[in-house]
């Protein structure tokens, strides 16, 4: 009896695996193997142009990071970017979702308009924004029209990264707005009605019903947001034509990896940097999970 059961289970398992085989093979070849190879490369000095040549150098690539000034600048820029962009875009997304969830007129149109930037390709958005940010461009003309100070948005190292932040917040917040909107519509109306009868104000309702219900979604949005912002590449690449300038102000970790891998062809060091970034992202995610879990216990 037991044997038959086991055989049946084996057959079932085989069927299950064979259904998953295409995905597992594709994942294995294009995700797991490259990761393993990247780990392997990060301990080597690699020469790939001309004759291929690998030399084991132990942890030298990792030590090199500590002394590499540009790694620290890139990390600092990336952290600054994450710390400003993630909270802003999350709060903005929530705000927009709340507005669109209320019964204002023409909210369907607003939904479409708000969502448009997310549908547009980021490369195209960046090019449009470079035009808007131009010293004599739209933004400066509007600012000057109101008598506000104007900036050299792309050329000035102290504002270049902020220009990218503004652009990115504007373009990704709507995506999270949609996620919030879907979550908002899942909250039972009866809770609000009960709260109203108990004499709760709109603010009380927001903090005691809406926010707690949105916590899982917020966790998702913050995690995805942090991973996305840590991997910032295309916007700063286009803004600075690949250099991370002016004066390293738009240099991000992924852009630095790109520069070492494809400009200097130093694959070993680039792989080590990529591992470092992966470790940082994992660490941040683990920290977040513990924070959110602790609160769940209450």
């Amino acid at each position: 009896m037991r044997r038959v059961w086991q055989r049946g289970r084996f057959g079932e398992g085989l069927a299950g695996f064979s259904f998953m085989a295409p995905t597992m093979i594709v994942m294995g070849v294009f995700t797991v193997l490259p990761i393993a190879y990247a780990i392997f490369l990060s301990f080597h000095k690699v020469r790939i142009l001309g004759e291929f040549d690998l030399r084991f150098i132990g942890g030298r690539n990792f030590w090199r990071m500590l002394a590499d000034e540009r790694v620290w600048i890139a990390l600092q820029n990336t952290f600054e970017y994450v710390v400003i962009v993630v909270p802003t875009q999350t709060i903005l997304a929530l705000g927009l979702a709340l507005i669109l969830n209320s019964s204002i007129r023409g909210k369907h149109w607003f939904r479409i308009i708000f969502f448009l930037p997310t549908v547009t390709a980021s490369a195209v958005l960046t090019l449009i924004f470079m035009w808007i940010y131009n010293s004599n461009g739209l933004l400066n003309n509007i600012l000057a029209g109101f008598g506000l100070p104007t900036y050299n948005w792309i050329g000035d190292p102290s504002v270049a990264l902020k220009s990218i932040m503004i652009m990115n917040i504007w373009s990704t917040a709507p995506l999270y707005m949609i996620v919030y909107l879907a979550a908002l519509q899942d909250i039972p109306k009866s809770l609000y009605e009960a709260a109203k009868i108990d004499g709760a104000s709109a603010l009380d309702q927001f903090f005691n019903i809406t926010l707690p219900f949105l916590k899982p979604v917020t966790f998702f949005i913050v995690v995805i947001g942090i991973i996305g912002t840590f991997q910032l590449f295309d916007q700063s690449y286009i803004f600075s034509a690949g250099s991370g300038g002016p004066n390293n102000s738009t240099l991000t970790v992924v852009l630095l990896i790109y520069q070492y891998a494809f400009k200097s062809l130093d694959m070993g060091y680039a792989a080590a940097l990529a591992l470092m970034l992966a470790a940082v992202i994992m660490l941040v995610t683990v920290i977040q999970r513990t924070i959110f879990k602790e609160e769940k216990l209450h």
Partner: peptide, 19 residues
């Protein structure tokens, strides 16, 4: 030269705008 160029361009702009 490509390495030197990156570092030069970064710092030269910074000198130019008076940082």
């Amino acid at each position: 030269l490509p390495t030197v160029l990156t570092h030069f361009n970064n710092q030269f702009i910074s000198a130019l705008i008076g940082e």
